[in-house]
Amino acid sequence: MTMRTFAYAQPESLADVIAALGAAPSRDAVRPLAGGTDLLTLMKGDIVAPDRLLDLKRLTGLDDTVEIRDNELVLGALTTLTAIETGSLVGEHCPALAKAASLAATPQLRNRATLGGNLLQRPRCWYFREHLIPCWLKGGDACPAREGENGLHALFADSPCVAVHPSDLATVLLAMDATVTVRGDAGERAIAAGDFFVQPDEGRRRENTLGGDEVVLSVAIPLIPGRTSAYHKAMDRKAWAFALVSAACSFRLDGGVMRDVRVVLGGVAPIPWRSTAAEAALDGERPGADVFARAAAAALAGAEPLRHNGYKVHLARNLVIEALEEVTRA
């Protein structure tokens, strides 16, 4: 559990970071370092071994500002989870995100971990994290979890990998139609959260579409009047655990019926898993137990449980119902 040697640099500008990333011989050779709460564990576990780390915390162009801009709540990539949990703007405009932050990790980790790093963190899959066991996501031939100890794994994996995305925040952000702004050699681009998180495939054994030379700058959440949201998370202990399953739901009521409905599940796929089928079941309907149950069933309709994770179907269904109930109450 000790890291290999590496070099450490504190670039003065974001441009220097982007240039260094672009010039790196491989994606893992040079890595940006923000809070480091995920990266250092990957290095200690010998899952990645960068030659060089570039500190992102002391340069111009990247920040931890949280503000309202053009009717969006914008959070700088260096915003800590503590700031998301306790900040007044997030609390006012996106309480589900604050709740997701409060249910993530521990005070010490939240004080250090950043929003950008949280979105980019790698899966907790115990095969992925065990350097002795080859796995597809690490460049191996096959996924050992498919036939192995897969109680914590995915119900919806359109990928050789059945690990689940570990981020609580990402699940909520997808339900809020957030966009992720990144900058690379080719300049800045804003990516819808649904396009940012993509299931790993042969050409891209990662859970997102961030380019090798790109850095996450900020996340923006559109403020839709009347929209409320909720986040429910099931853990195998009361605190300090990644989600077994989580559910983020949001909608607004328009003349008593639900509109702009979002239903997103965490812990069930390699990425935050949006169910348009569940959303369609709810859209235009009045909130109520029957329609919630139908939507929850729709959300899990295509689930493909592995040997040990069938419980997640039942759990996810009920978490969707709970989250929808809470949105209704809010």
């Binding site: 109680g151 099931a234 195998d236 077994l244 994770n309 069938g310 419980y311 179907v313 039942h314 759990l315």
Partner: peptide
Amino acid sequence: SRSRVVDALA
């Protein structure tokens, strides 16, 4: 565990 309890209840 959560999984055992959920499985049994389901």
